[in-house]
Design a protein around this nucleic acid. Structure first.
Lengths: 130, 130
DNA sequence: AGTAAATTACGCACTTTTTTGTAACCACGA
DNA sequence: TCGTGGTTACAAAAAAGTGCGTAATTTACT
């Protein structure tokens, strides 16, 4: 497992939160305690392996707590730590920024990706602005 | 170029901010206008390909503005948009959370190492120790 | 004076590295 | 045999690194 080496706190958080899953998992975990299989149901496209990997990472970052119960079949529960809970509003703020402030996030409907494709065909936007 | 398709604002921002470079570039750009070569100097380990790619992504996300000047050698300047500037405190908040709230971020490595040995709960620092 | 080289910000093709997916296996009791 | 949560080995895919080419002008050298 890769260790965090960077001295810059922003670089370090991003090392944990980067990628598709961390924020999604946090999102689902803020609803309460979840089991491994719950999280897979919440997000059907994550692979078995990825889920364990991401949960481990979140655990090591002190965002998620893992509780293992004796008995069979094996039962494991995941929940946000208090630090993890404090992280939630910060992530929400990013989502909010995207929706309300970012010019990309506000796009009303499906024409988001399509026109950027046209725009990159060679016509620079520099000439238009002014 | 991959388009953003997800409906979830958090997923979408993370698609833009994920990885090593986006937040770093934003960090340097908040200091003011930078040229391509400035950003390479600021961060010597990024390859020219990555830098262009990441700048494009930031541009498409409306975080960074690219200005091309005529003349030779070619001159291009990058700066944060107003939306980009509004993003800065949110990213800083994450870094702050890491330092002050996350149990991993506040590793007191400047103190005597003997103390931290006892304080170690379950979080492994493997790789960090010389 | 003539030619070569450097300059800046890339694009493109190719290679290497990293990440992720897939599938099989483990433990055990119902 | 199924189900749970997890590990491992191997394969596929994605991301990133490398090096070359490009533009028009200046500088460097002969």
């Amino acid at each position: 497992m890769k260790s965090i080496v960077s001295r810059c706190p922003i670089e370090e958080v991003m090392q944990v939160l980067s990628g598709r899953w961390p924020t999604l998992l946090i999102y689902y975990l803020k609803q309460g305690t979840k089991r491994f299989s719950d999280l897979r149901r919440d997000n059907p496209t994550i692979s078995h392996k990825m889920l364990t990997l991401e949960l481990r990472k979140l655990e090591q970052a002190g965002i998620v707590e893992r509780t293992e119960f004796d008995g069979y079949p094996l039962r494991v529960e995941y929940q946000l730590t208090s630090a993890g809970h404090k992280l939630v509003p910060l992530i929400d703020a990013l989502g909010d920024w995207w929706e309300t402030t970012s010019p990309v996030g506000e796009q009303p409907n499906t024409l988001n990706a399509a026109d950027t494709l046209n725009a990159e065909t060679g016509v620079s936007k520099d000439g238009l602005s002014g």
